[in-house]
Design a protein around this nucleic acid. Structure first.
Lengths: 198, 198
DNA sequence: GTCTATATATGGATAGAC
DNA sequence: GTCTATCCATATATAGAC
Protein backbone atom coordinates (compact mmCIF):
# COMPACT_ATOMS: atom_id res chain seq x y z
CA UNK A 1 0.00 0.00 0.00
CA UNK A 2 1.09 3.55 -0.61
CA UNK A 3 1.87 5.46 2.53
CA UNK A 4 0.93 9.10 2.21
CA UNK A 5 3.58 11.46 3.61
CA UNK A 6 2.04 12.64 6.85
CA UNK A 7 4.41 15.49 7.52
CA UNK A 8 7.20 17.57 6.13
CA UNK A 9 9.79 16.13 8.49
CA UNK A 10 9.31 12.64 7.08
CA UNK A 11 9.41 13.92 3.52
CA UNK A 12 12.69 15.68 4.24
CA UNK A 13 14.18 12.45 5.57
CA UNK A 14 13.00 10.39 2.62
CA UNK A 15 14.42 12.85 0.11
CA UNK A 16 17.65 13.11 2.11
CA UNK A 17 18.16 9.35 2.11
CA UNK A 18 17.83 9.32 -1.65
CA UNK A 19 20.12 12.27 -2.29
CA UNK A 20 22.81 11.37 0.27
CA UNK A 21 22.88 7.83 -1.12
CA UNK A 22 23.20 9.07 -4.68
CA UNK A 23 25.87 11.70 -4.23
CA UNK A 24 27.31 11.57 -0.72
CA UNK A 25 27.12 13.96 2.20
CA UNK A 26 29.40 16.70 0.86
CA UNK A 27 27.87 16.69 -2.60
CA UNK A 28 24.34 17.33 -1.44
CA UNK A 29 23.51 20.83 -0.26
CA UNK A 30 20.70 21.83 2.05
CA UNK A 31 19.42 23.83 -0.93
CA UNK A 32 19.23 20.66 -3.05
CA UNK A 33 17.19 18.86 -0.43
CA UNK A 34 14.87 21.80 0.22
CA UNK A 35 14.30 22.28 -3.49
CA UNK A 36 13.27 18.66 -4.02
CA UNK A 37 11.04 18.73 -0.94
CA UNK A 38 9.42 21.90 -2.23
CA UNK A 39 10.29 24.27 0.60
CA UNK A 40 12.88 26.99 1.15
CA UNK A 41 16.19 26.08 2.81
CA UNK A 42 15.36 28.18 5.86
CA UNK A 43 12.23 26.11 6.49
CA UNK A 44 14.31 22.99 6.70
CA UNK A 45 16.08 24.41 9.74
CA UNK A 46 12.78 24.47 11.58
CA UNK A 47 12.76 20.65 11.47
CA UNK A 48 16.47 19.93 11.91
CA UNK A 49 19.17 21.83 13.77
CA UNK A 50 21.73 21.46 11.00
CA UNK A 51 22.86 19.34 8.08
CA UNK A 52 24.74 16.82 10.24
CA UNK A 53 21.68 16.12 12.36
CA UNK A 54 19.61 15.60 9.24
CA UNK A 55 22.20 13.19 7.87
CA UNK A 56 22.23 11.17 11.09
CA UNK A 57 18.44 11.00 11.13
CA UNK A 58 18.52 9.81 7.52
CA UNK A 59 20.95 6.95 8.00
CA UNK A 60 19.22 5.86 11.21
CA UNK A 61 15.92 5.73 9.37
CA UNK A 62 17.36 3.93 6.36
CA UNK A 63 19.26 1.38 8.42
CA UNK A 64 16.69 0.58 11.08
CA UNK A 65 14.12 -0.21 8.41
CA UNK A 66 16.39 -3.03 7.23
CA UNK A 67 17.18 -4.43 10.64
CA UNK A 68 14.17 -6.70 11.00
CA UNK A 69 13.35 -7.57 7.40
CA UNK A 70 15.86 -10.40 7.28
CA UNK A 71 14.91 -11.81 10.67
CA UNK A 72 11.98 -13.78 9.29
CA UNK A 73 14.02 -15.97 6.98
CA UNK A 74 16.48 -16.74 9.80
CA UNK A 75 13.75 -17.74 12.24
CA UNK A 76 12.22 -20.46 10.09
CA UNK A 77 12.45 -24.08 11.16
CA UNK A 78 14.62 -25.47 8.39
CA UNK A 79 17.80 -27.51 7.99
CA UNK A 80 20.89 -25.29 8.24
CA UNK A 81 21.91 -25.64 4.63
CA UNK A 82 18.48 -24.74 3.30
CA UNK A 83 18.21 -21.83 5.68
CA UNK A 84 21.56 -20.50 4.49
CA UNK A 85 20.36 -20.80 0.93
CA UNK A 86 17.24 -18.80 1.69
CA UNK A 87 19.29 -16.21 3.56
CA UNK A 88 21.65 -15.71 0.63
CA UNK A 89 18.72 -15.32 -1.75
CA UNK A 90 16.89 -12.89 0.52
CA UNK A 91 19.99 -10.78 1.12
CA UNK A 92 20.75 -10.60 -2.58
CA UNK A 93 17.17 -9.59 -3.27
CA UNK A 94 17.21 -6.86 -0.63
CA UNK A 95 20.57 -5.53 -1.76
CA UNK A 96 19.31 -5.43 -5.31
CA UNK A 97 16.02 -3.72 -4.44
CA UNK A 98 17.26 -1.01 -2.12
CA UNK A 99 20.18 0.64 -3.82
CA UNK A 100 20.10 3.77 -1.63
CA UNK A 101 20.57 1.61 1.46
CA UNK A 102 23.52 -0.21 -0.08
CA UNK A 103 25.18 3.00 -1.17
CA UNK A 104 24.69 4.65 2.20
CA UNK A 105 26.30 1.62 3.81
CA UNK A 106 29.27 1.75 1.46
CA UNK A 107 29.69 5.43 2.19
CA UNK A 108 29.58 4.78 5.92
CA UNK A 109 32.24 2.06 5.57
CA UNK A 110 34.45 4.66 3.89
CA UNK A 111 33.74 7.76 5.90
CA UNK A 112 31.74 6.74 8.96
CA UNK A 113 33.39 7.76 12.21
CA UNK A 114 33.86 5.26 15.02
CA UNK A 115 30.68 6.28 16.78
CA UNK A 116 28.50 5.78 13.72
CA UNK A 117 30.13 2.45 12.80
CA UNK A 118 29.53 1.25 16.34
CA UNK A 119 25.90 2.26 16.18
CA UNK A 120 25.53 0.54 12.82
CA UNK A 121 27.12 -2.67 14.07
CA UNK A 122 25.20 -2.91 17.30
CA UNK A 123 21.77 -1.63 16.40
CA UNK A 124 21.45 -2.83 12.83
CA UNK A 125 23.68 -5.81 12.14
CA UNK A 126 24.47 -7.61 15.39
CA UNK A 127 21.35 -9.75 15.63
CA UNK A 128 21.55 -10.88 12.03
CA UNK A 129 25.31 -11.33 12.23
CA UNK A 130 24.98 -13.64 15.24
CA UNK A 131 22.15 -15.63 13.73
CA UNK A 132 24.12 -16.30 10.55
CA UNK A 133 27.14 -17.12 12.69
CA UNK A 134 25.15 -19.82 14.47
CA UNK A 135 24.03 -21.11 11.11
CA UNK A 136 27.52 -21.60 9.71
CA UNK A 137 28.61 -23.23 12.94
CA UNK A 138 25.87 -25.79 12.40
CA UNK A 139 27.18 -26.46 8.92
CA UNK A 140 30.80 -26.65 10.07
CA UNK A 141 31.34 -26.68 13.85
CA UNK A 142 35.06 -26.05 13.42
CA UNK A 143 34.81 -22.88 11.37
CA UNK A 144 35.43 -19.32 12.50
CA UNK A 145 31.92 -17.84 12.43
CA UNK A 146 33.07 -14.21 12.40
CA UNK A 147 35.21 -14.69 9.29
CA UNK A 148 32.64 -16.89 7.60
CA UNK A 149 29.81 -14.40 8.01
CA UNK A 150 31.97 -11.57 6.68
CA UNK A 151 32.73 -13.79 3.68
CA UNK A 152 29.05 -14.43 3.01
CA UNK A 153 28.27 -10.73 3.19
CA UNK A 154 31.30 -10.01 0.99
CA UNK A 155 30.16 -12.28 -1.77
CA UNK A 156 26.63 -10.95 -1.93
CA UNK A 157 27.28 -7.26 -1.38
CA UNK A 158 30.38 -6.93 -3.54
CA UNK A 159 28.62 -8.50 -6.48
CA UNK A 160 25.98 -5.81 -6.06
CA UNK A 161 28.45 -2.98 -5.43
CA UNK A 162 30.45 -3.64 -8.54
CA UNK A 163 27.50 -4.01 -10.89
CA UNK A 164 28.18 -0.77 -12.81
CA UNK A 165 31.81 -1.82 -13.16
CA UNK A 166 31.37 -5.43 -14.27
CA UNK A 167 30.01 -4.60 -17.70
CA UNK A 168 33.46 -3.38 -18.69
CA UNK A 169 35.16 -6.63 -17.69
CA UNK A 170 35.64 -9.76 -19.83
CA UNK A 171 32.94 -12.36 -20.07
CA UNK A 172 30.13 -10.14 -18.85
CA UNK A 173 26.60 -11.34 -19.62
CA UNK A 174 23.21 -9.89 -18.78
CA UNK A 175 22.50 -12.73 -16.36
CA UNK A 176 25.36 -11.59 -14.17
CA UNK A 177 23.14 -8.80 -12.94
CA UNK A 178 20.15 -10.94 -12.04
CA UNK A 179 19.29 -11.63 -8.43
CA UNK A 180 18.72 -15.38 -8.80
CA UNK A 181 21.87 -15.89 -10.82
CA UNK A 182 24.05 -14.10 -8.29
CA UNK A 183 22.44 -15.82 -5.32
CA UNK A 184 22.85 -19.25 -6.85
CA UNK A 185 26.48 -18.62 -7.71
CA UNK A 186 27.22 -17.43 -4.19
CA UNK A 187 25.41 -20.30 -2.50
CA UNK A 188 27.17 -22.92 -4.62
CA UNK A 189 30.52 -21.32 -3.88
CA UNK A 190 29.77 -21.32 -0.16
CA UNK A 191 28.86 -25.00 -0.20
CA UNK A 192 31.50 -26.43 -2.53
CA UNK A 193 34.14 -23.83 -3.26
CA UNK A 194 35.13 -23.09 -6.83
CA UNK A 195 35.42 -26.72 -7.96
CA UNK A 196 31.73 -27.61 -8.14
CA UNK A 197 32.54 -31.11 -9.28
CA UNK A 198 34.29 -32.00 -6.05
CA UNK B 1 65.27 3.07 -1.83
CA UNK B 2 63.82 6.47 -1.13
CA UNK B 3 62.87 8.41 -4.21
CA UNK B 4 63.46 12.11 -3.73
CA UNK B 5 60.63 14.27 -5.10
CA UNK B 6 62.12 15.67 -8.28
CA UNK B 7 59.50 18.28 -8.93
CA UNK B 8 56.50 20.07 -7.55
CA UNK B 9 54.10 18.46 -9.98
CA UNK B 10 54.85 14.99 -8.64
CA UNK B 11 54.60 16.17 -5.05
CA UNK B 12 51.19 17.63 -5.76
CA UNK B 13 50.00 14.31 -7.18
CA UNK B 14 51.37 12.31 -4.26
CA UNK B 15 49.69 14.56 -1.72
CA UNK B 16 46.50 14.56 -3.74
CA UNK B 17 46.32 10.77 -3.84
CA UNK B 18 46.63 10.69 -0.08
CA UNK B 19 44.07 13.39 0.59
CA UNK B 20 41.50 12.29 -2.01
CA UNK B 21 41.73 8.72 -0.71
CA UNK B 22 41.28 9.84 2.88
CA UNK B 23 38.39 12.22 2.46
CA UNK B 24 36.99 12.03 -1.04
CA UNK B 25 36.96 14.51 -3.90
CA UNK B 26 34.42 16.98 -2.54
CA UNK B 27 35.93 17.03 0.94
CA UNK B 28 39.39 18.04 -0.19
CA UNK B 29 39.90 21.65 -1.27
CA UNK B 30 42.60 22.95 -3.55
CA UNK B 31 43.66 25.03 -0.56
CA UNK B 32 44.11 21.84 1.53
CA UNK B 33 46.35 20.28 -1.08
CA UNK B 34 48.42 23.44 -1.65
CA UNK B 35 48.88 23.89 2.08
CA UNK B 36 50.24 20.37 2.55
CA UNK B 37 52.48 20.71 -0.51
CA UNK B 38 53.81 23.97 0.88
CA UNK B 39 52.76 26.30 -1.91
CA UNK B 40 49.95 28.81 -2.45
CA UNK B 41 46.75 27.66 -4.17
CA UNK B 42 47.43 29.91 -7.16
CA UNK B 43 50.73 28.11 -7.80
CA UNK B 44 48.92 24.83 -8.10
CA UNK B 45 47.06 26.16 -11.12
CA UNK B 46 50.35 26.57 -12.93
CA UNK B 47 50.72 22.76 -12.89
CA UNK B 48 47.09 21.71 -13.37
CA UNK B 49 44.24 23.40 -15.21
CA UNK B 50 41.70 22.71 -12.50
CA UNK B 51 40.73 20.43 -9.64
CA UNK B 52 39.12 17.78 -11.86
CA UNK B 53 42.25 17.44 -13.97
CA UNK B 54 44.34 17.03 -10.85
CA UNK B 55 41.98 14.35 -9.56
CA UNK B 56 42.16 12.43 -12.83
CA UNK B 57 45.94 12.60 -12.83
CA UNK B 58 45.94 11.33 -9.25
CA UNK B 59 43.80 8.27 -9.83
CA UNK B 60 45.62 7.42 -13.05
CA UNK B 61 48.91 7.56 -11.19
CA UNK B 62 47.63 5.54 -8.25
CA UNK B 63 45.97 2.88 -10.40
CA UNK B 64 48.61 2.40 -13.06
CA UNK B 65 51.23 1.76 -10.40
CA UNK B 66 49.22 -1.30 -9.33
CA UNK B 67 48.55 -2.67 -12.78
CA UNK B 68 51.74 -4.66 -13.19
CA UNK B 69 52.62 -5.56 -9.61
CA UNK B 70 50.37 -8.61 -9.59
CA UNK B 71 51.44 -9.85 -13.00
CA UNK B 72 54.54 -11.57 -11.68
CA UNK B 73 52.69 -14.01 -9.43
CA UNK B 74 50.32 -14.91 -12.28
CA UNK B 75 53.11 -15.61 -14.76
CA UNK B 76 54.86 -18.23 -12.68
CA UNK B 77 54.94 -21.84 -13.86
CA UNK B 78 52.92 -23.49 -11.11
CA UNK B 79 49.94 -25.83 -10.76
CA UNK B 80 46.68 -23.87 -10.96
CA UNK B 81 45.69 -24.41 -7.36
CA UNK B 82 49.03 -23.24 -6.00
CA UNK B 83 49.05 -20.25 -8.31
CA UNK B 84 45.59 -19.26 -7.09
CA UNK B 85 46.82 -19.53 -3.53
CA UNK B 86 49.77 -17.26 -4.24
CA UNK B 87 47.49 -14.81 -6.04
CA UNK B 88 45.09 -14.61 -3.10
CA UNK B 89 47.98 -14.02 -0.70
CA UNK B 90 49.57 -11.37 -2.91
CA UNK B 91 46.31 -9.53 -3.46
CA UNK B 92 45.54 -9.52 0.26
CA UNK B 93 49.01 -8.22 0.97
CA UNK B 94 48.74 -5.42 -1.61
CA UNK B 95 45.27 -4.43 -0.44
CA UNK B 96 46.53 -4.31 3.12
CA UNK B 97 49.64 -2.29 2.30
CA UNK B 98 48.17 0.36 0.07
CA UNK B 99 45.10 1.71 1.80
CA UNK B 100 44.91 4.90 -0.29
CA UNK B 101 44.65 2.80 -3.45
CA UNK B 102 41.86 0.67 -1.96
CA UNK B 103 39.93 3.69 -0.78
CA UNK B 104 40.26 5.46 -4.12
CA UNK B 105 38.93 2.35 -5.82
CA UNK B 106 35.97 2.14 -3.48
CA UNK B 107 35.21 5.79 -4.10
CA UNK B 108 35.37 5.25 -7.84
CA UNK B 109 32.97 2.29 -7.57
CA UNK B 110 30.52 4.62 -5.83
CA UNK B 111 30.96 7.84 -7.75
CA UNK B 112 33.03 7.10 -10.82
CA UNK B 113 31.30 8.03 -14.05
CA UNK B 114 31.06 5.58 -16.93
CA UNK B 115 34.16 6.93 -18.65
CA UNK B 116 36.36 6.54 -15.59
CA UNK B 117 35.03 3.06 -14.77
CA UNK B 118 35.73 2.02 -18.35
CA UNK B 119 39.28 3.33 -18.13
CA UNK B 120 39.77 1.56 -14.82
CA UNK B 121 38.47 -1.74 -16.17
CA UNK B 122 40.43 -1.72 -19.40
CA UNK B 123 43.72 -0.16 -18.43
CA UNK B 124 44.13 -1.44 -14.90
CA UNK B 125 42.17 -4.63 -14.31
CA UNK B 126 41.55 -6.37 -17.61
CA UNK B 127 44.83 -8.23 -17.92
CA UNK B 128 44.75 -9.47 -14.35
CA UNK B 129 41.05 -10.25 -14.56
CA UNK B 130 41.57 -12.43 -17.63
CA UNK B 131 44.58 -14.21 -16.18
CA UNK B 132 42.68 -15.14 -13.02
CA UNK B 133 39.73 -16.16 -15.18
CA UNK B 134 41.94 -18.64 -17.04
CA UNK B 135 43.18 -19.91 -13.71
CA UNK B 136 39.75 -20.74 -12.32
CA UNK B 137 38.80 -22.37 -15.61
CA UNK B 138 41.75 -24.69 -15.15
CA UNK B 139 40.50 -25.56 -11.68
CA UNK B 140 36.92 -26.07 -12.85
CA UNK B 141 36.36 -26.03 -16.63
CA UNK B 142 32.59 -25.73 -16.18
CA UNK B 143 32.60 -22.61 -14.05
CA UNK B 144 31.66 -19.09 -15.08
CA UNK B 145 35.03 -17.31 -14.98
CA UNK B 146 33.57 -13.79 -14.83
CA UNK B 147 31.49 -14.56 -11.75
CA UNK B 148 34.24 -16.56 -10.12
CA UNK B 149 36.85 -13.83 -10.45
CA UNK B 150 34.44 -11.24 -9.05
CA UNK B 151 33.89 -13.60 -6.11
CA UNK B 152 37.60 -13.92 -5.46
CA UNK B 153 38.06 -10.17 -5.52
CA UNK B 154 34.98 -9.79 -3.31
CA UNK B 155 36.32 -12.03 -0.62
CA UNK B 156 39.71 -10.38 -0.41
CA UNK B 157 38.74 -6.75 -0.87
CA UNK B 158 35.61 -6.76 1.28
CA UNK B 159 37.52 -8.26 4.19
CA UNK B 160 39.90 -5.32 3.85
CA UNK B 161 37.19 -2.70 3.29
CA UNK B 162 35.26 -3.63 6.38
CA UNK B 163 38.23 -3.79 8.73
CA UNK B 164 37.28 -0.69 10.73
CA UNK B 165 33.75 -2.06 11.06
CA UNK B 166 34.51 -5.65 12.05
CA UNK B 167 35.81 -4.80 15.50
CA UNK B 168 32.27 -3.92 16.53
CA UNK B 169 30.85 -7.29 15.46
CA UNK B 170 30.65 -10.51 17.49
CA UNK B 171 33.58 -12.88 17.65
CA UNK B 172 36.18 -10.36 16.49
CA UNK B 173 39.79 -11.25 17.25
CA UNK B 174 43.04 -9.49 16.45
CA UNK B 175 44.00 -12.19 13.95
CA UNK B 176 41.04 -11.26 11.79
CA UNK B 177 43.01 -8.25 10.64
CA UNK B 178 46.18 -10.08 9.69
CA UNK B 179 47.09 -10.59 6.06
CA UNK B 180 48.00 -14.28 6.34
CA UNK B 181 44.92 -15.11 8.34
CA UNK B 182 42.56 -13.46 5.87
CA UNK B 183 44.33 -14.93 2.85
CA UNK B 184 44.23 -18.44 4.28
CA UNK B 185 40.56 -18.16 5.15
CA UNK B 186 39.70 -16.96 1.66
CA UNK B 187 41.77 -19.61 -0.10
CA UNK B 188 40.24 -22.42 1.95
CA UNK B 189 36.77 -21.11 1.26
CA UNK B 190 37.51 -20.95 -2.46
CA UNK B 191 38.74 -24.54 -2.51
CA UNK B 192 36.24 -26.24 -0.22
CA UNK B 193 33.39 -23.91 0.57
CA UNK B 194 32.33 -23.36 4.14
CA UNK B 195 32.37 -27.04 5.19
CA UNK B 196 36.11 -27.62 5.35
CA UNK B 197 35.59 -31.23 6.34
CA UNK B 198 33.92 -32.12 3.08
C1' DG C 1 5.57 26.23 9.85
C1' DT C 2 7.14 28.69 5.94
C1' DC C 3 8.71 32.72 4.03
C1' DT C 4 12.37 36.80 2.57
C1' DA C 5 16.54 38.65 3.44
C1' DT C 6 20.98 38.32 4.87
C1' DA C 7 25.21 37.24 7.61
C1' DT C 8 29.29 34.70 7.12
C1' DA C 9 32.43 31.23 5.50
C1' DT C 10 34.61 28.67 2.15
C1' DG C 11 35.20 26.98 -2.28
C1' DG C 12 37.41 27.17 -7.28
C1' DA C 13 39.69 30.01 -10.17
C1' DT C 14 42.15 34.27 -12.42
C1' DA C 15 45.19 38.66 -13.00
C1' DG C 16 49.30 40.40 -12.74
C1' DA C 17 53.69 41.42 -10.03
C1' DC C 18 58.11 39.33 -9.11
C1' DG D 1 57.24 28.95 -11.02
C1' DT D 2 55.53 31.11 -7.12
C1' DC D 3 53.61 34.90 -5.04
C1' DT D 4 49.62 38.54 -3.39
C1' DA D 5 45.27 40.06 -4.11
C1' DT D 6 40.84 39.38 -5.48
C1' DC D 7 36.58 37.85 -8.03
C1' DC D 8 32.60 35.25 -7.84
C1' DA D 9 29.79 31.31 -6.96
C1' DT D 10 27.94 28.53 -3.58
C1' DA D 11 27.59 26.75 1.11
C1' DT D 12 25.53 26.61 5.98
C1' DA D 13 22.94 28.93 9.00
C1' DT D 14 20.23 32.80 11.37
C1' DA D 15 16.81 36.85 12.14
C1' DG D 16 12.57 38.24 11.96
C1' DA D 17 8.09 39.03 9.27
C1' DC D 18 3.83 36.58 8.18
Amino acid sequence: MNVIKENTRQTIIDISIKLFAQSGYANVSVRDIAKEVGIKPASLYYHFDNKQTLYLASIKESFSLKASVIAEVLNRQEPAELKLKHYVYKLTELASEDEPFCRLMQREMLDGDEQRLKYLAEKVFQEQFDAVGDLVKEIDPQCDPHMSVISILSLVLYHMETRPFQMFLSGYKKEHNQVDFIAEHVFKLLMNGLPESK
